[in-house]
Design a protein around this nucleic acid. Structure first.
Length: 478
RNA sequence: CGGGGUGUAGCGCAGAUGGCAGCGCACCGCGUUUGGGACGCGGGGGUCGGCGGUUCAAGUCCGCCCACCCCGACCA
C-alpha cells in the first residue's frame, strides 16, 4: 500500500525525519507546544546511550548526583554573559501554592549557577578538589522553533560539572570529556565526528571557550552533537567558589561543564537512516536481533515456535533479542515494520528452516532481499556476533565516506559560497568575528568548529584574504 | 516575532451553491490466509479546535480567539 511508504529522504528530508520518528515510535508530540513524549522504543535507545556514557564517566572518576529543577532568578543574574545568553529562553515560575513568589524561580535551562552556589559551600581546601559530578536530568529552554529530538522545549541530557585547582587541570578535563564524547559517537553510535573548538560567537554563554563534536547529517547539514566547556574562573568568581591552597592562600577554582542530550538520537536517525526508515547501530539498538516466526498451520506453528524459542534463548545470552509473536500479521508486514524501526539484524525461521536446520538472516544496512542470507542454526550465535560487528563497522565507514565526499576545500570565496550550500567547507579563517558574521550573512553557513586537528602552517582567510593560521569547518547547521 | 499552512473518528482526508456527518487506513469479532506491506463478512468509534453572531436550520456564512505544523531570525 502506497501510504505505508515514507517520504523519500532525498526529496524531502525534513518530512522523512518527522515520519521516521513518529512511525518508528521513538517519540510523539505532546499537548504542549514544542514538547514531546519519548516513547518506550526511543527511551530504550536513550537508556543505551546513557548507560554507555555513564560507564565512561564513572571510569574517569565522575559520580552522579541530582540537583533541583528550580533555580532562584538572582542566581542566573550573577554571571553577566550567562544571563544574557539564556534570558530569552527561560521559563519562569512566579506563583507557588497559589501565592505570588517573593523571588521568581527559573526552570533550569542548565545548572551551572546552582552548581556554583553549592560548590562554593562544599569546597574549602585544595584537598576537596577536584569535584567531578555529573547530572542526568532534563532542562527547559523556551525555543522559538522546535523539532523532534533536535530542539524541544524540554530535553533530557547529562550535564557534567567539575571544579579544579588549576587552569591546566580544567583544560585537561574539558578535553578529556570531549574525547569521551567523540569515542562514544564513533564507537557506539557509528557517527563520525570532528572535534574542535567553537568560535567566540558560538561558544557557551559564560564559558572561556567551548569544544564541540560536529557530525554531518544525511542532508549534509552539521549537527553539534555534544559540547564541553572550559568555564575558566567565570563561575567561580560569580559564585565565590574558592579554596585554600597548600600555602594557605585563597584561590578561585577553575570549572568545566559538558553535556550531551537526546538530540544525539536525532543525529543517529539522520546519519544512518534510509528510505526504508531507521537504521540503528547494533551497539545502541534496543533490539539488536528480531526473530520473525513464519508458519501456516497450527502444527507448523508449534514446531516453528519451538525452534524460535530455542534459538532466541540461545541468542539472548549474548544479544538483545526480541521475538515477534504478534498474531494475524503476515511475515512480510513484520519485515517492513522492523526495517522501519531500524533493527540491525532480523532472523526469520519458517518450516523450511526447521526441516533443514537453517535460518534466514537479513541485515538492515542492506535493505530488502539484498541483505538476506541463509545460514546454519549451528553456530548461529557466532554468525550473529560477527554480522553485528560488520554492520556496526560498515555504518561507520559509510557515514565517514559520506562526510569526506561532501567536505570541500574551496579555492576562493565564490567556490566557498557554492560548496557550503550542499556540504561542508574547510578553509583558512582569519579569526575575525566580523568576517565570521559576514560569511553567515552571505551564505547562512556558520563556523561549526576550529578542528583540533590542524593542517599546520598558514594561509589566506577564505573571505577577507588576510593572514590566517587556523582552519575552520563551515556549514549550514541545525 | 515575520511569512505560509492546517484544525471534521486514533491517523490521512472528503464534505460547490447552508438541509440526516462520510471515505480510506487503523481498531474489535468471526473465518480463510501467512517465506517481502493478505482477504471476506460483520462491528464500535464524532461536543466538526473554542466562543459568539446571522438563519427555521451552520462542519459549511460572518467576527473574535486558541492550538499545532512548515519556512526564516535565536539556540544543545
Amino acid at each position: 500500500m502506497a501510504d505505508q511508504r515514507l517520504p523519500s529522504r532525498s526529496e524531502n528530508f525534513a518530512d522523512w525525519y518527522n515520519q521516521v520518528v513518529l512511525r518508528a515510535e521513538l517519540a510523539d508530540y505532546a499537548p504542549v507546544r514544542g514538547c514531546m513524549v519519548i516513547r518506550p522504543y526511543g527511551w530504550a535507545l536513550w537508556e543505551n546511550i546513557r548507560d554507555t556514557l555513564d560507564r565512561r564517566f564513572k571510569a574517569t572518576g565522575h559520580v552522579n548526583a541530582a540537583f533541583p529543577l528550580f533555580i532562584p532568578m538572582s542566581f542566573l543574574e550573577r554571571e553577566q554573559e550567562h544571563v544574557e545568553g539564556f534570558s530569552p529562553e527561560l521559563a519562569v515560575v512566579t506563583i507557588g501554592g497559589g501565592q505570588e513568589l517573593e523571588e521568581p524561580l527559573v526552570v533550569r535551562p542548565t545548572s551551572e549557577t546552582i552548581i556554583g552556589h553549592m560548590y562554593a559551600k562544599w569546597i574549602k581546601s585544595y584537598r576537596d578538589l577536584p569535584v567531578l559530578i555529573n547530572l542526568w536530568n532534563s532542562v527547559v529552554r523556551w525555543e522559538m522553533r522546535t523539532k523532534l529530538f533536535l530542539r524541544t522545549t524540554e530535553f533530557y541530557w547529562q550535564e557534567g560539572h567539575t571544579a579544579h585547582a588549576t587552569a591546566e587541570e580544567a583544560e585537561a578535563e574539558t578535553l578529556q570529556m570531549l574525547d569521551i564524547y567523540a569515542d562514544f559517537a564513533e564507537r557506539e553510535a557509528a557517527v563520525p565526528v570532528i572535534r574542535g573548538r567553537k568560535s567566540q560567537s558560538e561558544k557557551f554563554a559564560g564559558a572561556v571557550h567551548s569544544y564541540t563534536i560536529e557530525a554531518m547529517m544525511g542532508d549534509r547539514r552539521a549537527l553539534q552533537s555534544g559540547t564541553s566547556h572550559n568555564l575558566g574562573q567565570n563561575f567561580a568568581k560569580a559564585f565565590e567558589i574558592r579554596y585554600l591552597d597548600q600555602n594557605n592562600e585563597l584561590q578561585y577554582c577553575w570549572t568545566t561543564s559538558w553535556g550531551l542530550s537526546t538530540r544525539f538520537i536525532g543525529a543517529i536517525i539522520m546519519v544512518h537512516g534510509d528510505d526504508q526508515g531507521l537504521i540503528l547501530p547494533p551497539r545502541l539498538a534496543p533490539h539488536q536481533v528480531v526473530v520473525v516466526p513464519i508458519f501456516r498451520s497450527e502444527e507448523e506453528k508449534s514446531t516453528v515456535m519451538e525452534t524460535v524459542e530455542r534459538l532466541a534463548q540461545q541468542l539472548g545470552e549474548r544479544f538483545r533479542v526480541y521475538v515477534d509473536r504478534r498474531e494475524g500479521l503476515t511475515p512480510g508486514f513484520k519485515f517492513n515494520d522492523w526495517e522501519m524501526r531500524g533493527v540491525p539484524l532480523r532472523v526469520e525461521i519458517g518450516p523450511k528452516d526447521v526441516a533443514k536446520g537453517s535460518a534466514a538472516l537479513a541485515r538492515r544496512d542492506q535493505p530488502g532481499r539484498a541483505g538476506k542470507q541463509f545460514v546454519d542454526q549451528a553456530g548461529l550465535t557466532e554468525t550473529v556476533a560477527s554480522l553485528l560487528d560488520e554492520i556496526q563497522a560498515s555504518l561507520y565507514q559509510r557515514a565517514l565516506s559520506f562526510r569526506q565526499e561532501h567536505t570541500h576545500q574551496p579555492e576562493d570565496y565564490e567556490a566557498f559560497k557554492d560548496v557550503v550550500q550542499n556540504g561542508w567547507a574547510e578553509s583558512w579563517w582569519c579569526g575575525d568575528a566580523e568576517c565570521e558574521a559576514a560569511i553567515k550573512e552571505e551564505t547562512k553557513a556558520t563556523i561549526r568548529c576550529i578542528p583540533l586537528d590542524q593542517p599546520g602552517g598558514s594561509g589566506k582567510c577564505i573571505r577577507c584574504g588576510n593572514e590566517a593560521d587556523e582552519h575552520a569547518v563551515f556549514a549550514r547547521a541545525y
